[in-house]
Computed example of a mutant assay.
Amino acid sequence: MRVDVHAHYFPADYLDLLTAHGSRHTDIARIPCAGDAEGDIDARLRMMDTAGVDLQILSAAPQMPYLEDAGNAVEAARFVNDRYAELVAAHPGRFAALAAAPLPHTDEAVKETVRALDDLGFAGAAVSTTVLGRTLGDPSFEAYWAALDDRSAPVFVHAAGRDLDSPQIADHGLTWIVGAPFEDAVGVLHLLRAGVPTRYPRIKFVVPHLGGGLSFLLQRIDDNYLHYHEAFPALPSTLLRRMWFDTVGAHAPALREAIDSFGADRIVLGSDYPYFQGDLYTRAVRYVSEADLPAEQVRAVLEDNVRAVFDRL
């Protein structure tokens, strides 16, 4: 089975709810075939069929229910998780869902994540790289990670779209071109430095965009750790090779470099739908087969590796 682990679904009424609660970042999600407008799902399924994708694993990131008011955050999280559950039920075998949690309200986030995983049957959870300015290594999130670890849950870590708090990114149209992959890398390094994957080894972290540059920087990160005794609980490359990385990027040299750095068994198929549609969606899948890789590595990336991560499927 060919599974796309990096696809988004943005129901319009959910985006409206976020906007009503103060979000100013929903416009980028209001694009054709992204949500539940008439014909959207049929068009999505046609593109999946053309690309040879059997199932998409859907997340709401970066349109997450991260709101200052706990009541609003819980309302938004329950709303979007229920909508995802409805879509999954309406199209058996074509979609799975990742839980959205009302962080930074940790007690409420645990309750809603447990509901999504245990009652709604979600495949895992999704988080953004920052939560209202807090890193994923924030000590207040410990109970959330513990609940996911108890369930050996996959966790998809997606860029927040907050430009690394840099006007050099935000003010020059670079939020998603450069900002997002660097957010992936920095967000994961915060997780590692805080020791989250070490304390909760049963969580299966999935990082998009081929790791956002982490493979290129792998030796540099290790060398600085050894030289400066940075506060990682173990050698960073060892910790990173326990994670998985999706193929979003459609650049064969980068894919080969990620495989060389992390291992072919650590790469899973991702598309970033709906931001890549039509021919670009097909290319997101096809380029793996055209990347001059051994046949067994192609098969592992496109079909086999996902089973080790999303065993709930």
Results as ranks from 00 to 15, higher is better:
residue 135 T to K: 07
residue 111 K to V: 13
residue 176 W to T: 15
residue 40 D to A: 14
residue 172 H to K: 01
residue 216 F to G: 10
residue 91 H to M: 05
residue 247 T to V: 11
residue 35 G to R: 06
residue 190 H to C: 04
residue 274 P to I: 14
residue 163 D to P: 00
residue 137 G to N: 11
residue 303 E to N: 11
residue 168 Q to N: 08
residue 213 G to H: 07
residue 93 G to E: 08
residue 194 A to G: 06
residue 232 F to T: 15
residue 12 A to C: 01
residue 245 F to D: 07
residue 295 A to D: 15
residue 188 V to R: 01
residue 36 D to I: 09
residue 119 D to F: 01
residue 192 L to M: 08
residue 158 H to G: 11
residue 267 I to K: 03
residue 173 G to M: 00
residue 149 D to W: 02
residue 311 D to S: 14
residue 165 D to H: 04
residue 11 P to K: 08
residue 190 H to M: 02
residue 94 R to V: 11
residue 214 L to N: 07
residue 39 G to I: 14
residue 236 P to H: 09
residue 229 H to N: 13
residue 252 A to I: 12
residue 150 D to L: 07
residue 187 G to Y: 00
residue 172 H to M: 01
residue 97 A to L: 03
residue 178 V to I: 12
residue 301 V to W: 00
residue 15 L to V: 10
residue 227 H to R: 11
residue 88 V to T: 12
residue 17 L to R: 06
residue 4 D to A: 09
residue 205 F to G: 10
residue 102 P to Q: 06
residue 174 L to A: 08
residue 52 G to R: 04
residue 189 L to I: 14
residue 288 V to M: 04
residue 163 D to F: 00
residue 170 A to L: 02
residue 211 G to C: 05
residue 21 H to A: 12
residue 3 V to C: 03
residue 93 G to S: 10
residue 249 G to R: 03
residue 110 V to W: 01
residue 299 R to M: 03
residue 45 L to M: 07
residue 8 H to G: 11
residue 308 A to K: 03
residue 69 D to V: 14
residue 61 A to T: 14
residue 146 A to M: 06
residue 82 D to L: 03
residue 272 D to G: 10
residue 81 N to A: 11
residue 288 V to C: 05
residue 312 R to Q: 12
residue 152 S to E: 08
residue 31 I to V: 13
residue 253 P to M: 13
residue 159 A to T: 10
residue 2 R to T: 15
residue 216 F to A: 14
residue 264 A to V: 15
residue 254 A to D: 06
residue 247 T to S: 14
residue 38 E to K: 09
residue 240 L to Y: 02
residue 119 D to N: 12
residue 10 F to Q: 06
residue 17 L to Y: 00
residue 24 R to A: 13
residue 123 A to R: 04
residue 18 L to M: 09
residue 107 D to S: 14
residue 309 V to R: 01
residue 192 L to Q: 06
residue 130 T to L: 00
residue 18 L to P: 07
